[in-house]
């Protein structure tokens, strides 16, 4: 028996989208395989690694812990909403300058988490950045350069403000 489909309507990176989805379809699968936004990565599907972090109504959320149907009437933002390879977002630019990524698999989730964090905390110290980062696992970098990148992005934003 085919699974029942439910209509949903949501805003994805500023654009209205409509879809028919199974109730059990994970938001992470919906974003990646239905919307084709493969920048959102999946590392654990049990809410620990943070690779799948997106913004749900502006707040960081784990796409692997939400069903697509739960976003009906809401808005989500993925890493694709930041910059493009030609025009990086200042946060992305800081990650490149500070070597804040190696394999880059954890990076989209970290960028989305840090984007929301910096909006709330424009002038964070190292301890605050480390704490905000602690829900995102990175197996490659040892975090030091990520922390430096976030601090740099904050400084750049403050200078620009």
């Amino acid at each position: 028996m085919a699974e029942r489909q439910y209509p949903i309507r949501l805003t994805v990176n500023g654009t209205e989208r409509e879809a028919q989805v199974e109730a059990r379809l994970l938001l992470s699968d919906f974003i990646r395989h239905r919307l084709g936004l493969t920048g959102t990565h999946v590392g654990c599907e049990h809410g620990v690694c943070g690779a799948c972090t997106i913004l749900h109504d502006g707040v960081p959320a784990r796409a692997c812990l939400l069903f697509a149907v739960q976003t009906h009437g809401h808005s989500i933002e993925t890493v694709e909403s930041l910059g493009t390879p030609e025009h990086l977002h200042p946060l992305q630019e800081a990650f490149r300058a500070c070597h804040g990524l190696q394999c880059g698999y954890c990076t989209p989730g970290i960028l989305m988490t840090m984007k929301a964090f910096l909006e709330q905390h424009p002038d964070p110290d190292e301890a605050a950045i480390r704490k905000a980062l602690s829900g995102n696992l990175c197996r490659c970098t040892g975090y030091q350069n990520i922390v430096a990148a976030v601090a740099r992005a904050a400084a750049v934003a403050r200078e620009g403000a």
Partner: peptide
Amino acid sequence: LPRREDARLLTGQATFVDD
């Protein structure tokens, strides 16, 4: 030198196997 692969990785444009 900063890495050439970063722009694609940072913007979600790099292709991993599941992509």
